[in-house]
């Protein structure tokens, strides 16, 4: 007995075998798979192998067991780099996680100039990172730099910013927050605009003020996005490299040496020790994987 045609699908299309019908989808999937294989998975596997090898890229690589991991752990900068990375992550979360959410809340409430302000907030993201960083190098200049000039206007003595162990790391956090504020704000804004307005109306009818509306409507409604952004931000900030590389070179007194910067030092400064760089990279990856796993587990438990 012939199968009746399904509504909306032409009969001749249904006669084409499944694989042939999905050929376009498979084609696009292949492109993605090739990209991931060569530009993500292969480098990960290669780095994993590299972390157990010593190689000069000319002669046969030598398997050295856990020697690279020992080299890294015994490095006097190892502990400092992890502490700095954790401090940077913590500070970057305080600034880079909370500030964009508050900015998004404000932008969402505005009735005028909304598009213009969104553009202004997003503008730093469009600047090439090197330009943004160089801009801050001038801002932070202890002599004629913008920040010290502003402090001077108020009669406050200037700071050493990048040249002091007490201010160097937070100075990098400020740069990072400024450069990434736009993207995070836009994502939060999109989430805020998806919240049904009747929830706010109901809350208002119940007598909720601004902070209670945020607490009982906004945050629960954007919880998934907030959790996702938390994970993305931690993963991104723990890999911080550009700011110390371009602004401080890890100084002063190793105050801004981060794990990713130390990896770079091993591979490209300390005589091409790619094995040690790879070992440190694997450590960072496992820490981030463990964090992501815990975070996903907690999220899942919350849903259940």
């Amino acid at each position: 007995m012939p199968v009746p045609p399904r509504a909306g699908i032409p009969a001749d299309l249904l006669e084409i075998p499944m694989i042939k019908r999905n050929l376009t989808a498979y084609g696009f999937m292949c492109a993605a798979l090739i990209c991931f294989t060569f530009f993500a998975w292969y480098p990960i596997v290669h780095q994993f192998l590299l972390s157990f090898q010593q190689t000069n890229f000319v002669t046969e690589a030598e398997w050295v067991g856990l020697d690279n991991f020992r080299t890294v752990i015994e490095d006097p900068a190892f502990g400092t780099a992890w502490l700095n990375t954790l401090a940077f992550t913590g500070l970057a979360l305080l600034c880079g996680y909370v500030v964009p959410f508050v900015v998004a809340l404000v932008l969402n409430e505005l009735r005028h100039c909304r598009a213009y302000l969104r553009f202004v907030v997003y503008l730093p993201v469009m600047l090439p990172p090197i330009v943004g960083v160089l801009l801050f190098r001038w801002f932070y200049d202890p002599g004629p730099g913008l920040f010290n000039q502003i402090l001077d206007l108020f009669g406050i003595p200037g700071l050493a910013w990048l040249d002091s162990t007490s201010t160097a790391l937070i100075s990098l956090v400020i740069v990072s927050t400024w450069m990434n504020l736009g993207s995070a704000t836009l994502i939060y804004l999109a989430a805020l605009q998806n919240i049904p307005s009747d929830l706010y109306e109901a809350a208002e009818l119940d007598g909720a003020g601004l902070f209670r509306r945020i607490r009982f409507v906004t945050i629960p409604q954007t919880r998934l996005i907030l959790l996702l952004m938390l994970m993305l931000q931690i993963v991104a900030t723990m890999q911080v490299f550009l700011e110390p590389f371009l602004l401080t070179g890890g100084g002063p007194e190793n105050a801004t040496v981060t794990v990713a910067y130390l990896m770079y030092q091993y591979a490209f400064v300390y005589g091409g020790n790619f094995g040690a760089g790879g070992a440190l990279g694997m450590m960072l990856m496992f820490v981030l994987l463990a964090f992501a796993a815990v975070q996903l587990r907690l999220t899942r438990e919350e849903k259940m």
């Binding site: 050929l23 376009t24 498979y26 084609g27 696009f28 292949c30 492109a31 090739i34 990209c35 060569f38």
Partner: peptide, 11 residues
């Protein structure tokens, strides 16, 4: 479909 094949082959 052709675009997908072309992309994959190119990559």
């Amino acid at each position: 479909r052709n675009l997908a094949i072309l992309l994959s082959a190119g990559l």
